[in-house]
Design a protein around this nucleic acid. Structure first.
Length: 325
DNA sequence: CGCGAAGA
DNA sequence: TCTTCGCGG
């Protein structure tokens, strides 16, 4: 039940960071945060990110390590947080929860067997974005003056909406949902080493001779986070069928297939619950307050975050100078 | 999610 | 050639 199928259809091209200088990007915060959270858990000892009171805040290390990438390339990130979760997604969430429980059990076994590396590897898969993680991430982002947007519902939908209405230049997410939510351009691989890639909606539609609604129908046929697809129908067949029959309903009738809640899922993508919002792109972080927050209030060893804070300081000072020249 | 193996 | 399945990350 994944929509990685869309990769085979999406028009994706590499893009260099140098081309993104000055750009604003609405980041799917859940996605971005989870990525840095899991890598932090995997590569650092839990003693580093656990307070004396037993609270785990690996996110604070992750955020400090992740943000410099934006500033160093003169990109303004707007962090978009999820609001309410659609109940259509509960099946998907339940499955992920079961996966995490399995990983947690195996991690415990590895820990007891004395295999710390294997345990850390598995523990990185058990991570949940707890209330504490959400709250402390928001607080740190606020101190660093990074714009935050609270989505009414799905974060990807909100990010796509902001890109669609020109509030930002790009949506930023690792998954392909933003395409179905109508984002004209989505940046992927913003968190990994090399240059990112840019996924374009218009080029995707042109390539397959589809409308946006038809692309949504293709996605639904393949399966999304909100619905199971039709068995035997993958991306290629879905495009062919939608092209032949026109829309999802005609395809389902012709194939004698049924998709639970298909009408609701379609509405969710085409007319999502989003809000119009603005943000201040001038970022003026309070580095001292941020350092104090992370190291004093949440007891993270300064050595773990110092390099990240330095990189933020250097790049923000740099862009501050740019503004006057 | 990406990838490789296996079945259709 | 396309889809599914299962694993590692």
């Amino acid at each position: 039940m994944g929509n990685a199928d869309l990769r085979q259809l999406a028009a994706i091209e590499p893009i260099e960071f140098s081309e993104l200088a000055g750009a604003t990007v609405a980041i799917d915060a859940h996605n971005w945060l989870y990525r840095y959270l899991t890598t932090t858990v995997k590569w650092t000892s839990d003693a580093i990110y656990t307070t004396a009171a037993g609270e785990e805040v690996a996110n604070l290390v992750g955020v400090v390590q992740g943000l410099p990438k934006f500033f160093e390339h003169d990109i303004t990130p707007v962090m978009v947080f999820d609001g309410g979760v659609t109940d259509l997604k509960t099946d998907e969430i339940e499955q992920r929860r079961e996966q995490k429980e399995k990983a947690a059990k195996r991690a415990k076994e590895a820990r007891e067997a004395g295999d710390a590396v294997e345990a850390a590897r598995l523990e990185s898969r058990t991570q949940r974005l707890t209330d504490t993680i959400h709250e402390t991430t928001r607080e740190l982002l606020a101190l660093l003056d990074v714009p935050i947007v609270e989505a009414p519902a799905e974060g990807e939908a909100q990010a796509a909406h902001m890109a669609r209405t020109g509030t930002v230049d790009y949506a930023g997410s690792e998954d392909y949902d933003t395409l179905l939510f109508g984002a004209p351009r989505t940046l992927r691989d913003l968190t990994s080493k090399g240059d990112p890639e840019c996924m374009a909606l218009d080029a995707t539609l042109d390539e397959h001779d589809l409308t946006w609604e038809q692309l949504v129908d293709v996605g639904i046929l393949c399966g999304t986070d909100f619905n199971d697809g039709v068995s035997g129908i993958g991306p290629k067949t879905a495009v062919k069928l939608v092209g032949e029959h026109g829309d999802l309903w005609a395809v389902l009738e012709a194939e004698d297939a049924y998709i639970e809640n298909a009408d609701l899922v379609r509405e969710l993508f085409v007319n999502p619950d989003v809000t119009d919002t603005d943000f201040d792109p001038a970022i003026e972080p309070d580095l001292d307050a941020a350092r104090t927050y992370v190291t004093d209030e949440w007891e993270i060893p300064a050595s773990e975050v110092e390099r990240g804070f330095e990189r933020i300081q250097e790049s923000v000072v740099q862009s501050g100078l740019d503004r006057w020249t």
